[in-house]
């Protein structure tokens, strides 16, 4: 059973353990002051080049981010990888204001097949001032490739 979807997590951070990314701060509750939401995915037994894709939706069911515009190929060298971990970040500072409070949705596709979906709640936190978001000098889609970050644990 190769090229398997393992599990999906919503978290606030990523750490590295035994050369693999692991989710840190697993939660489904965020607030509008948070800077990012991470969707972490674990795949198993990858033996070919595969396409992955995340789609993020706001509480009004509108698509706010789709990674299809990036090069999201995994294992381009076509090795055999026992565990592949990867994640995508939803940068809340880059989303058009005001941020919608409510239930957001993220879905994950493997080879254009939906394999998992998760919800998280973004709460409106009034009173606190949001830190000014860093200005984007120029939209650089390639630089966003780091959002889709992979780590692999080869079979050897």
């Amino acid at each position: 059973m190769d090229n398997q979807f393992g599990r999906m997590y919503i978290c606030s951070n990523i750490k590295i353990e035994k050369d693999l990314y692991t989710p840190a701060g697993i939660t489904s509750d965020f607030n509008t002051q948070d800077k990012k939401v991470i969707c972490f995915v674990r795949l198993n037994n990858i033996n070919k080049e595969i396409q992955v894709r995340w789609k993020w939706y706001d509480p009004d069911s509108r698509l706010v981010r789709d990674t299809v515009q990036f090069d999201t190929l995994v294992n381009t060298r076509e090795d055999f990888i026992m565990v592949q971990t990867l994640y995508d970040e939803l940068d809340l500072t880059q989303i058009k204001k005001p941020l919608k409070g409510g239930v957001w949705t993220v879905v994950f596709y493997l080879e254009n097949l939906l394999v998992g979906s998760m919800n998280f709640t973004l709460k409106n936190q009034a009173g606190k001032k949001r830190a000014p978001s860093p200005e984007r000098k120029s939209p650089d889609i390639r630089s966003n490739l780091s959002d889709i970050t992979c780590s692999a644990y080869p079979s050897w």
Binding site: Y57, D60, V107, L114
Partner: peptide, 23 residues
């Protein structure tokens, strides 16, 4: 659809499509 969450014993379910919006 993309996903189906269902309760076969109650004959209820929800089919979801993820496109530009969620249907």
């Amino acid at each position: 659809g993309d996903e189906l969450v269902f309760l076969p014993n109650e004959g209820k379910g929800l089919l979801v499509n993820y496109n530009k919006t969620i249907a």
